[in-house]
Design a protein around this nucleic acid. Structure first.
Length: 554
RNA sequence: AGUUCCAUGGUGUAAUGGUAGCACAACAGUUUUUGGUUCUGUUUGUCUAGGUUCGAAUCCUGGUGGAACUACCA
C-alpha cells in the first residue's frame, strides 16, 4: 500500500488532531434541494465523507433548505439516492428547516445584544446604501431603532403582519467595511411561501449566512468545507458565531471542480432541462450523478476520479478524458463481453454448409478468470460492421477487403473472395470462404492473422435500440465563451440507432447492467429497456488507436 | 479601483529549505483470437525580477497574470 501525500485539508485536520484541538472530526455535505447533484458535488461528497471515514469521524447530510420558492421534495429524494449510490452513509440526516425555531431565537438574541435591526428600506434603497467595491456604504435611517422596537417589529414580521419585501432583519456590523458582505447583511426576509417541509408555518426565512454557520454549530461540525466562492463569507460566518457565543465551527474553502465540454452550475443545468435541450436531469449526456449513472458509470469509477483529481485551491478544469479513463479502467475489469453490430453489412461464408449452425464457446471477460463462458450461435450468414470492410484497403488495414483474411472472434478464419454493391456504390454483401481447421480453441490451421472482427449470426440475431452519446458542448469551457452558453451545445450529442443486431445472450439483461460490446465500447442497459424493446446506452468507447492512425494519415 | 484568494509539463495533482515526482493525454515499442487490456520506454513544467541561504517550487519583497466579491439565492 503506497503512502499518498496529504491534501491541504488533510494536513489541517491532522494538525488539529495532533494538537488535540479536536478529539474527532465532524464534517457535513450541505446541498440545497433545488436541483440534482452533479459530478462536482460528487467530488465534494467524496471529500466530506471520505475525510470522516479516513479520520474515523462523522459526516452529516444536511439539506440547506432556507429558500422555499426553489426547493422541492423531488430534489431531496434524488440527492439522498445519489449519495447512497455513490457508496456513502451519513451519520445524521438534518434539514436546516428543522432549526428554524432555533435560528429565530438566535436572531432575537442578536437583536437583544444590539447586533441586529429591522430595516424598512426597499431593495433598491438598500442596494444604493450599500455602496460598491470602490465606494463605502452609508447607514440606513432605520439603523438606530431601539432594541425594543426591533424586537416588536421582528415578532410582527414572523406573525405575518407585513407583505413580502416590506421589512428585513439586518445584522448591524459596519457599512464601511471593505468586505461588502459585512455591510449590514440581511439575515431574515419575509416570504409568504409554502415550504416543502414546514408548510405554511413560517413567513420569515433566514438567509444563507444566518443559517449555514449556525446549523454547522448546532451539529458541532468541526470542519465546514465549502467552495472558494464562499471565502468572502468567512468573516461573517465567524462574526455570527462569535456574537451568538455558540460552538465555533470553522469554514475551509477549496476550488470547485470543473470538467471540459460541460457546464457545472445547477442554474445552467436546470435551463438545459427546462428548455428540453436534454431529456431530464438524468439524461446520459448530463454531468449529473443520475445522468452518469444512466450513462453506465459506476460509483467506483466516480470515487476513483474524485480521488485522482484531488483537491486544491486553484482554478481548474479537468479533462473529461480522465473521467472516461476512470470508467474504462473499472468497466474493463467487471463488464462482460458481448457482440453487437451497430452498422451491419451481410457476410456470407460460401463454403459453410447451408442450414448448419454451431454453438461456439465465448469467454465472458478475459480480465476475469472466473468470469465464465457463454454460447454464441454461428452460421453461414453473419452481420459484420460496415467499418470492417474496405474495397481499397490501405496496407495497415487489418480487416476485410478483397483478398484479405481475418479471424471471426471465437470462430473461424475467413478470407474475402468477392462482394456486391448496389447502384449507389454501397456494399451490400461480402463473400468469404472459411478454413474449417481454424476453429477457435481447436485451431490446427497454423495460420496467423493480424485482425479479428466481431459479428452476429443473421438467423440468430436479436435487435436492440442503441444510443450513442457525444459531448454535450462543442467547446471546452462553454461557461467562459462569449454569449449564451447554450449557443455551444453540440447538435450531434445524441445518435439513436433504432435497430442494431445483438447476440442472443444480450437479451438477458436488466437496467444498469454493464457490457463491453466487443471492439466498440462499454454499454449499459437503459432504465426504459424492456425484454420486448431493448435499449442500450453507450457509456464510453474503447481506446481506438486505428481511428487515431486514420486521422494522422488524413 | 478596493478587498480576498490563487500561480508547478497540454490537463489534474505532489514535493512542507536538500535529486521537481505521480496520473491522464501524446509519442515509440511489447504482448494479445478485442487496433481493447498488459508491460516497457520517451517528450513536455516551477509566471517574472530581486533578496535571504551552503542550498529556494518552497521563505521575503516588487511586478505580471488569473479568479472571486457589489442577490430580500445558496
Amino acid at each position: 500500500m503506497e503512502e499518498r501525500s496529504l491534501n491541504f485539508l488533510e494536513e489541517i485536520i491532522e494538525n488539529h488532531l495532533a494538537e488535540g484541538k479536536y478529539k474527532n472530526i465532524h464534517t457535513r455535505f450541505p446541498p440545497e434541494p433545488n436541483g440534482y447533484l452533479h459530478i462536482g458535488h460528487a467530488a465534494s461528497i467524496c471529500l466530506n465523507f471520505g475525510l470522516a471515514i479516513k479520520y474515523k469521524g462523522q459526516c452529516n447530510l444536511r439539506f440547506d433548505d432556507t429558500n422555499p420558492v426553489t426547493e422541492e421534495t423531488e430534489y431531496v429524494e434524488s440527492i439522498m439516492n445519489d449519495v447512497k449510490w455513490l457508496g456513502f452513509n451519513w451519520d445524521e440526516l438534518h434539514y436546516t428547516s428543522d432549526y428554524f425555531e432555533e435560528l429565530y431565537g438566535f436572531a432575537v438574541k442578536l437583536i437583544e445584544k444590539g447586533f441586529a435591526y429591522v430595516d424598512d428600506s426597499t431593495a433598491e434603497e438598500m442596494a444604493a446604501q450599500k455602496g460598491d467595491i470602490n465606494r463605502t456604504g452609508v447607514n440606513s435611517i432605520y439603523r438606530s431603532r431601539s432594541i425594543d422596537e426591533n424586537l416588536q417589529l421582528f415578532a410582527e414580521m414572523r406573525e405575518g403582519k407585513y407583505p413580502d419585501g416590506a421589512k428585513v432583519l439586518r445584522a448591524k456590523i459596519d457599512m464601511e467595511h471593505p468586505n461588502l458582505l459585512m455591510r449590514d447583511p440581511i439575515i431574515y426576509r419575509i416570504k409568504h411561501a409554502h415550504h416543502h417541509r414546514t408548510g405554511d408555518k413560517w413567513c420569515v426565512y433566514p438567509m444563507y449566512d444566518f443559517a449555514h454557520g449556525q446549523s454547522d454549530s448546532i451539529e458541532n461540525i468541526t470542519h465546514s468545507i465549502c467552495t472558494l466562492e464562499f471565502i468572502h463569507h468567512r468573516p461573517l460566518y465567524d462574526w455570527f458565531i462569535e456574537k451568538l457565543e455558540i460552538f465555533p465551527s470553522h469554514q475551509y474553502e477549496f476550488a470547485r471542480r470543473n470538467l471540459t465540454y460541460t457546464v457545472m452550475s445547477k442554474r445552467k443545468l436546470l435551463q438545459l432541462v427546462n428548455e428540453k435541450h436534454v431529456d431530464g436531469w438524468d439524461d446520459p449526456r448530463m454531468p449529473t450523478i443520475s445522468g452518469l449513472r444512466r450513462r453506465g458509470y459506476t460509483p467506483e469509477s466516480i470515487r476513483n476520479f474524485a480521488d485522482t483529481i484531488g483537491i486544491a485551491k486553484r482554478e481548474n478544469i479537468t479533462d473529461v478524458g480522465l473521467l472516461e479513463f476512470c470508467v474504462r479502467d473499472h468497466l474493463n475489469k467487471i463488464a462482460d463481453r458481448r457482440m453487437a453490430v451497430l452498422d451491419p453489412v451481410k457476410l456470407i461464408i460460401t463454403n459453410y454448409p447451408e442450414g448448419q449452425t454451431e454453438d461456439l464457446i465465448a469467454e465472458n471477460n478475459p480480465e476475469n478468470e472466473n468470469g465464465g463462458t457463454r454460447s454464441v450461435p454461428f452460421s453461414r450468414e453473419i452481420w459484420i460492421e460496415r467499418e470492417d470492410f474496405m474495397e481499397d484497403a490501405p496496407k495497415k488495414f487489418f480487416r476485410l477487403g478483397p483478398g484479405l483474411t481475418v479471424r471471426l472472434k471465437y470462430a473461424y478464419i475467413v478470407t474475402c473472395n468477392d462482394f456486391k454493391k448496389d447502384e449507389h456504390g454501397n456494399i451490400t454483401e461480402i463473400y468469404c470462404s472459411y478454413i474449417p481447421e481454424s476453429k477457435s480453441g481447436s485451431d490446427t490451421s497454423g495460420l496467423k492473422v493480424k485482425g479479428t472482427i466481431h459479428w452476429v449470426s443473421v438467423p440468430h440475431a436479436k435487435t436492440a435500440e442503441v444510443r450513442l452519446y457525444d459531448r454535450l458542448f462543442k467547446v471546452e469551457n462553454p461557461a467562459s465563451e462569449e454569449g449564451d452558453f447554450k449557443d455551444y451545445i453540440n447538435p450531434d450529442s445524441l445518435t439513436i440507432l433504432p435497430k442494431a443486431y445483438i447476440e442472443p445472450a444480450l437479451t438477458e439483461t436488466n437496467p444498469l447492467d454493464k457490457f463491453q460490446f466487443l471492439r466498440l465500447g462499454y454499454f449499459t442497459t437503459d432504465k426504459n429497456s424492456t425484454s420486448g424493446h431493448l435499449i442500450f446506452n453507450k457509456t464510453v468507447g474503447l481506446k481506438d488507436s486505428w481511428a487515431k492512425e486514420v486521422k494522422k494519415e488524413g
